[in-house]
C-alpha cells in the first residue's frame, strides 16, 4: 500500500464500494500516513456535499437574471457589508498565538518602533495571529494600521500591503485577530501602528516562515 494507490481508491473507500479486507488495509494506511488521512477526511467532506439534495431554481429566476445581465449592470439581490472597521472574521485555519502589546497609552515616541514578538507563518494554510492590545483608558476613534513587508499576506486581501481602519478601543484588553499566510520564501514583518490624537506608537512583529 502506498499513497498513490490510496489516492486512486479513496473514492471507492468512502463510497463503501470496497471489500472489507481491502478497506481495512486502506484505513490502516491512513492511520500511519498524515497526508492520506487528511485526503480521506477531504474526500468524506466532498462526498457529504455531493449527497446534499439538489434544489431547483425558483420559477422565473433565469428569465430575471438573463434580462438583467444582458441589459446592463445587474441589480444585486443583496448587498454585503465588507470590512468596514477592524474586523477580520471567518474561515481560517488557526494557529493560536497571543501577542500582548502592553501599552501605557502610547507613552513611547513613534520613531522608536518596538519588536514585540515573532509569529511563524505557513505557506500551506492561513494561521490566525491574535494580538491583544491593552490600554489603560478608553481610546475612542483610535487609528490602526497594518503594514506588511516580505512574502506574507493577510488572508483574503491578496497583495495589499497596508490596511487601515479606526475603532474605539476599550480600556483594558482589545483583541485583533489576523489570518496570515506566507506567499513565498523568507517570511516578512508586520508593523502595527496605533495612533490617537494624543500620540502614535509603532510595533514590529517578525513573521518568519515555518519550515
Amino acid at each position: 500500500m502506498n499513497c498513490t494507490e490510496f489516492s486512486e481508491q479513496v473514492t471507492a473507500l468512502t463510497a463503501g464500494a470496497m471489500p472489507e479486507a481491502s478497506r481495512d488495509e486502506y484505513l490502516a494506511h491512513a492511520k500511519v500516513c498524515a497526508g492520506c488521512d487528511a485526503a480521506l477526511r477531504g474526500r468524506r467532506a466532498t462526498l457529504a456535499m455531493e449527497r446534499l439534495p439538489v434544489e431547483q431554481p425558483p420559477a422565473g429566476l433565469f428569465e430575471r437574471i438573463a434580462t438583467d445581465v444582458t441589459r446592463s449592470r445587474p441589480q444585486r439581490g443583496t448587498s454585503r457589508s465588507f470590512w468596514t472597521g477592524a474586523a477580520f472574521g471567518g474561515a481560517v485555519a488557526a494557529s493560536l498565538l497571543a501577542i500582548v502589546l502592553m501599552l501605557g497609552v502610547f507613552e513611547l515616541p513613534a520613531d522608536q518602533p518596538q519588536t514585540v514578538a515573532a509569529f511563524y507563518v505557513s505557506a500551506d494554510e492561513p494561521r490566525m495571529m491574535h494580538v491583544a492590545i491593552e490600554v489603560d483608558r478608553a481610546l475612542p476613534g483610535a487609528e490602526i494600521s497594518i503594514l506588511l513587508t516580505g512574502n506574507v499576506e493577510v488572508q483574503g486581501f491578496g497583495s495589499r500591503r497596508e490596511l487601515n481602519w479606526s475603532d474605539n478601543l476599550d480600556a483594558g484588553i482589545n483583541k485583533l485577530s489576523l489570518p496570515l499566510i506566507a506567499s513565498g520564501e523568507g517570511g516578512g514583518q508586520m508593523v502595527v501602528r496605533l495612533s490617537h490624537p494624543d500620540s502614535e506608537q509603532l510595533f514590529v512583529i517578525d513573521l518568519p516562515l515555518d519550515s
Partner: peptide, 24 residues
Amino acid sequence: RSKLGRLLSSEALQQPILKVVGGK
C-alpha cells in the same frame, strides 16, 4: 483533498465567529 481535510481539522473552523477589535 488533503488540504481540505487538514483545514477541516483546524481549530478556527470548529469555532464560531471570531471576535475582533473592541471587545473587552
